[in-house]
Amino acid sequence: MTTQVPLDFADGKDPQAFRTIGEVAQAFGLRQHVLRYWEEQFPMLRPLKRAGGRRYYRPEDVHLVAEISRLLYKEGFTIRGARQALGGKKPSAATAGDGAAPAVPVASAASPEPAPASDKAPDSAAVSLAKLRDLRDGLAQALGEG
């Protein structure tokens, strides 16, 4: 995989060395629970798990995390759109009807497309913040008129 993301871990390890979830999270400025959530949402992201459930990310896993991060945070894709763009599908009984819809990126990162109500995956921090602001404004307006 060729990704133009600088993967400078600056820890003295070989670039082909396996990385812990903490190392990968820190390198991308993410929290560890985000990576665990992505493992659920992106079936192709499967780091090795050792005894006790300790995760080890291979170099190809790290590149995939870089690609997912780029799609979600730079390109403005939703989780569903990023999954489609990467060619993976969420394994669940709810998606038995596999519609072959093309992956469609959001127009811009500033105004991401909200996910349908049936998709319970959070789109992004920006979309969540916008939804909360709309809810707050609606409540303030209703209370002010009431």
Rank of each mutant, 00 (worst) to 15 (best):
M44S: 05
L48A: 08
L135P: 00
A109C: 07
L45H: 04
E75W: 00
G97L: 10
G87R: 05
G53S: 04
K131R: 15
G53F: 05
L35K: 06
A94S: 12
Q16E: 12
D8N: 15
E67S: 10
A82D: 03
R58H: 11
V65K: 07
K131S: 13
R50H: 08
P6Y: 14
W38I: 00
Q26A: 14
P116N: 07
D98Q: 10
G52E: 00
E39Q: 15
S69D: 15
Q41M: 14
V34G: 03
D123M: 06
R50Y: 11
D8I: 06
P105M: 02
G99Q: 04
R54F: 04
G97P: 14
S108R: 08
A140T: 09
P91V: 09
G138W: 02
R31Q: 15
T78M: 07
A142C: 06
F28S: 02
Q4L: 11
A142Q: 06
L129R: 12
H33W: 09
D137E: 14
S92C: 13
K120M: 11
Q26M: 00
Q4H: 12
G22F: 01
V5W: 12
A142T: 12
D8C: 05
L30Q: 12
A10I: 00
Y73T: 04
R133E: 11
P122L: 13
V104Q: 13
D123N: 11
K120L: 15
D137P: 00
G76R: 15
A17S: 13
L30S: 03
A121P: 00
K74Q: 15
A10N: 15
P122S: 07
G87I: 12
G52Q: 05
A121T: 13
L139R: 07
R55M: 10
L35A: 13
R83Y: 08
E67L: 09
Y37I: 02
K90I: 09
A142I: 08
D11E: 03
F42G: 11
A121D: 15
I79N: 13
A110P: 01
T2V: 14
T95Q: 12
L30G: 03
S108A: 06
V65S: 08
D123L: 12
R31L: 01
K89P: 01
R80T: 10
R19Y: 02
P105K: 08
Y37V: 01
G81D: 10
M1W: 07
Q84D: 05
Q141W: 03
D8Y: 04
M44V: 11
G97M: 06
A96L: 11
T2G: 13
A140H: 01
M44T: 12
E67I: 01
F28C: 03
D14A: 14
F28L: 01
A101W: 13
Q26F: 01
S92K: 09
S124Q: 03
V34Q: 15
V106G: 09
G138R: 11
A103S: 11
Y56R: 11
T95H: 09
A85D: 02
A85Y: 13
E40A: 05
K49R: 15
A103R: 08
R19G: 01
P91D: 08
G52A: 03
Y37A: 11
E40I: 00
F9A: 02
A100V: 01
Y57W: 08
P105T: 04
V62Y: 03
Y37M: 05
G88R: 02
T2I: 08
D14E: 10
Q32E: 15
P122M: 13
Y73V: 00
A85R: 14
F9V: 02
